[in-house]
Amino acid sequence: MNAIITLLAGLLFGLGLAFSEMTNPAVVIGFLDIFGNWNPSLIIVMASAIAVGMIGYFIKGKQLRPFLGSTWQVPTLRQIDSKLIIGSSLFGIGWGISGYCPGPGLTALVNNPNEGIYFVGALIIGSGLHYFQTKISHK
């Protein structure tokens, strides 16, 4: 059952990305280009995501445990540190340069394989470097 729910959630997420055109780097870059030819259409996508998140937190406040799980999986860190600032800055710079973030970037393997292969390759290499750096620093 968990696998089916995960598949359905992934399909819904993918459809949302495609419908909102977040899989199109030109639309994303147009949204991020506030001093140029700005395209504010992704504000609706962000507002929708925030609304869904708020509903989730509302449900969490009313339920002792999730419908399909034993415990709630909620981030507990509240500290803004250098790792958060550097990581979010690198994410934002990469998103602004390429027009892709990880979810829509994976769709580029099909929609635009000439660009997608570079993005996904860089994503894998960056994730691997972070993984090995974390392993080394925790020894």
Rank of each mutant, 00 (worst) to 15 (best):
L42F: 01
L42T: 00
I43Q: 03
I43H: 02
I43K: 00
I44H: 07
I44L: 09
V45A: 05
V45W: 00
M46P: 01
A47F: 01
A47P: 02
A47I: 03
S48F: 08
S48M: 09
S48G: 10
S48Y: 07
I50Y: 03
I50P: 01
A51E: 02
V52A: 10
G53D: 02
M54Y: 12
M54D: 08
M54V: 10
M54R: 13
M54S: 11
I55C: 04
I55K: 05
I55Q: 02
I55E: 01
G56E: 00
G56Q: 02
Y57L: 10
Y57A: 06
Y57V: 04
F58M: 09
F58W: 14
F58A: 07
K60D: 00
K60R: 13
G61K: 04
G61T: 04
G61D: 00
K62M: 07
K62H: 08
K62Q: 14
K62E: 06
K62A: 09
Q63D: 07
Q63S: 09
R65Y: 10
R65G: 03
R65D: 02
P66Y: 02
F67K: 08
F67T: 12
L68E: 11
L68W: 15
L68S: 11
L68F: 10
G69C: 06
G69P: 00
G69A: 08
G69L: 07
S70R: 15
S70Q: 15
S70H: 12
S70G: 15
S70W: 15
S70V: 14
T71G: 09
T71P: 02
T71K: 14
T71D: 14
W72L: 05
W72R: 02
W72H: 05
Q73W: 15
V74D: 03
P75H: 01
P75A: 01
P75C: 01
T76L: 11
T76W: 06
T76N: 10
T76V: 10
T76P: 00
L77W: 14
L77R: 14
L77M: 12
L77N: 13
R78W: 06
R78F: 07
R78I: 05
Q79H: 13
Q79L: 13
Q79Y: 12
Q79T: 11
I80V: 13
I80M: 09
I80R: 09
I80W: 06
I80G: 07
D81I: 02
D81M: 06
S82G: 11
S82I: 14
S82R: 11
S82A: 10
S82M: 15
S82K: 15
K83R: 14
K83G: 13
K83C: 11
L84H: 11
L84E: 05
I85D: 08
I85A: 10
I85L: 12
I85Q: 08
I85K: 06
I86W: 11
I86H: 14
G87H: 04
S88N: 09
S89D: 12
S89H: 11
S89W: 06
L90E: 05
L90G: 10
L90F: 08
L90K: 09
L90T: 09
L90N: 09
G92D: 01
G94Y: 00
W95P: 01
G96K: 02
